[in-house]
């Protein structure tokens, strides 16, 4: 065999090992989520042979995972809505205007990431109790928006910066007002990127467990519900729950994969 062949074989082997390392836990939890409990506990079957939907059914309808999933979805959707309403204009301002204090504002937005959510959750609970929205999804939405907002601002600003300002200026020249130029030209051009960042905002909210656990008791999000009940439940429920947690994130990240590297790149600056 010549050197080139050995090299490509080696590359293939390493790539295979990497894929196995990253995929195996996901494949295993999928198997366990659908395995019948008998097969799961049978030490002779490494790979379960019988599969069932009953864990999902039980989790969703008799345990409160259905309710929790709904809350998680609503929280994520409202968080995206609120954080985009607040963050898109700010991101647009950062990308399109030169103004006094711009760098200070940008730095302020960046520095909010220094504060861990742990320190926010505690006072927020007390504030929410005072204004009567503790243990509601609104409380979590407000907290999650604080978490997601800086990220939305920075990402949207770089997405708008990626839309050549000349496109917008051409629209101004050819008869549109500034706001119309934004909605007719800039927004459609930025839409794929904005959709991808919405997906990332969704994932951040959907995955967040600490604040959600502290702020709610009855109206728990899915991760909060799992955190408080999983370790006292039978194993197969744990894995079904873990699987349910993972699926939307996996599906969404698949759709946003083209933006993966660049978006994470921005959000991690």
């Amino acid at each position: 065999m010549d050197k080139e062949k050995i090299k490509s074989l080696l590359t293939f082997l390493i790539a295979g090992m990497i894929s196995l390392w990253f995929l195996t836990p996901i494949i295993f939890i999928t198997l366990s989520a659908f395995a019948t409990s008998k097969d799961y506990y049978n030490p002779n079957y490494i790979i379960p042979r019988h599969y069932t939907f009953s864990h999902f059914y039980k989790l969703f309808f008799t345990l409160s995972a259905g309710h929790a999933t709904l809350i998680s979805l609503s929280v994520a959707a409202l968080t995206i809505l609120l954080s985009f309403l607040l963050g898109v204009p700010a991101g647009y301002a950062l990308s399109r205007y030169k103004f006094k204090g711009k760098n200070t504002l940008k730095l302020t937005v960046l520095s909010t990431r220094m504060f861990p959510l742990m320190i926010l959750a505690i006072p927020l609970l007390i504030i929410f109790m005072q204004i009567g929205i503790s243990d509601t999804l609104w409380g979590i939405v407000l907290a999650h928006t604080t978490m997601v907002l800086p990220f939305v601002i920075l990402i949207t600003s770089s997405i708008f910066a990626g839309v050549d300002i000349a496109f917008e200026e051409a629209a101004l020249i050819f008869g549109l007002s500034r706001s119309k130029a934004f909605f007719k030209i800039t927004l459609p051009l930025a839409l794929p990127g904005l959709a991808a960042s919405a997906i990332f905002a969704f994932i951040m909210s959907w995955n967040e467990v600490f604040v959600a656990s502290i702020l709610t008791l009855q109206n728990r999000t899915l991760p909060a519900q799992i955190l408080s009940t999983a370790m006292d439940s039978p194993d197969y429920y744990k894995f079904t729950a873990g699987f349910i947690m993972a699926v939307p994130a996996l599906v969404f990240i698949f759709f946003a994969r083209r933006y993966l590297v660049s978006l994470w790149g921005i959000s991690l600056k």
Partner: peptide
């Protein structure tokens, strides 16, 4: 493709990751 595979865990919560890990290391785990 490998980049996408490697980045999959980025989308997962610590909760799912912990459960995946438990699935592997638990007494009746893999």
């Amino acid at each position: 493709t490998i980049v996408y595979l490697i980045t999959i865990p980025l989308a997962l919560s610590d909760v799912s990751a912990a459960l995946m890990s438990y699935n592997i290391f638990s007494p009746s785990g893999y």
